[in-house]
Amino acid sequence: MVGPFEDDRVSPNFSEIARQMLHDSIGEVAATECAASAASVLERLQTRLAPLVGAAGMRALFARSVKLTTTEFAALAPLRIAMLDEKVNAGDSLTDVLNSLDAATAWAAATALYTNFLALTSSLIGEHLVLLVLQRAFPKIDVTAKQESE
């Protein structure tokens, strides 16, 4: 695969990519749609990423991302607590928590959550591999968005 990932001097814009992932098939209307979108994103990521990092690895990455996001969005604290129980389904808990928030907060929190998830996973297995996975999980989004140069 060539092209999009050749310039590795500038990090990908994970925030923009996360936004695109969430809005891939569902429009920005209400918190309920945000919750469904976020759960769908999680499922699609699990399908592609779990074979690489393992089911347990996927859950650990997601739980860590939730922890990182709660520093900015304290409203996600119930999700962080839920993730401590391995029997709890992550997608269901994510849906419940986002549904309890107003639309603007839900979208912002979900975007921040997946931004952190992408950054964390990239720090461990590399941006190149992560972007390859995203391209296959979300064929319609543009994963080439780069952070603006300083």
Partner: peptide, 11 residues
């Protein structure tokens, strides 16, 4: 070895 570690080092 956890898969995520294996992936990190093997690449």
């Amino acid at each position: 070895e956890p898969p995520i570690k294996m992936l990190r080092y093997q690449q």
